[in-house]
């Protein structure tokens, strides 16, 4: 971890009609930091990831990644970034979705090699070699020729992680990566993410409801409520001794050992 922020939100507000999802939101993430976003549904955690992945536009405020602004100045004020600029931003970010979003018409191997070949310009041989390494890493070396429909949820999510890593992102976003999984498959996906967190200098943002897991892998935990970060700090502090009553109430529902009083 270094002291340079790679991600910066400054005074960002995001609304869907009357609903305010992010409310004058400030947030910074250091390069290499592993940050977990927790909080009730609809508190804006996933929106932060979706904005960073350029899946949602920002209406107000500043969002920057690696010094690149998500909006570019135009004649009449800040505009949405051009396709070319978005392409630069996206080359630095990857995302793992709750529902995997693998391409069903491609084999596991092709799911992982398609973008490196088409977007990064890697040779097919290089892309395949790298895909096999990544499959080895996520424990699916024998599934290269399988199709997504033939895999379990846990296997699909591990392929999705390998697919995201194949693009060599600097920031990897995990949007509730284990929420769609049967309970007995959660562990295998968490194990892969845990290893990534401990062994790589990748910047990781994770939205999750698995509190124990969040505690294990994070440098910092941020508790969201109503579009703002109510409380944040090292997992030991936030999860054992939360200062805010709202954080305590929320964690009480998840962690029996946290006092709710």
């Amino acid at each position: 971890m270094t002291d340079t922020p790679i991600i910066r939100f400054q005074n960002v507000s995001k609304r869907y009609g009357d609903l305010t999802v992010l409310d004058h939101f400030d947030f910074e993430v250091m390069s290499g930091e592993k940050v977990t976003l927790i909080g009730p549904s609809g508190s804006g955690k996933s929106t932060v990831l979706r904005i960073l992945m350029t899946l949602e536009p920002v209406q107000e405020g500043v969002v920057e990644l690696d010094g690149l602004s998500y909006r570019q100045p135009g004649r009449h004020g800040p505009f949405h970034a051009s396709a070319r600029h978005l392409h630069q931003i996206r080359s630095r970010v990857g995302m793992v979705f709750q529902n995997f979003n693998l391409f069903p018409h491609m084999s596991v191997l092709r799911n992982i090699t398609e973008a490196p070949v088409a977007v990064l310009g890697l040779s097919k041989a290089d892309a395949r070699a790298r895909a096999h390494e990544l499959l080895e890493m996520v424990g699916l070396a024998d599934k290269a020729q399988a199709f997504p429909a033939q895999l379990s949820g846990g296997q699909k999510q591990r392929v999705a992680i390998a697919r995201a890593l194949a693009m060599r992102p600097r920031v990897l976003l995990f949007d509730e990566p284990t929420s769609a999984l049967d309970p007995e498959l959660v562990g295998e996906v968490q194990e892969v993410i845990r290893r990534l967190a401990h062994e790589h200098d990748l910047t990781m943002l994770l939205v999750t409801h698995e509190m124990r897991f969040a505690r294990e892998i994070s440098d910092r935990v941020c508790f969201f409520d109503q579009g703002r970060i109510v409380e944040q700090g090292p997992p030991g502090e936030i999860m054992i001794n939360p200062a805010q009553p709202r954080t305590r109430a929320f964690l009480g529902a998840y962690l029996p050992e946290t006092s709710t009083g």
């Binding site: 899946l55 396709a83 996206r90 990857g94 693998l102 391409f103 973008a115 088409a118």
Partner: peptide, 25 residues
């Protein structure tokens, strides 16, 4: 829509997304 989002996350251009991801499905 999730397929389009996965394509964005992998940095495919709009044209690549149409020809490689959407049309084959």
């Amino acid at each position: 829509r999730a397929q389009h989002e996965a394509a964005v996350a992998l940095n495919f251009t709009a044209r690549q997304t149409l020809w490689r991801i959407i049309l084959p499905q």
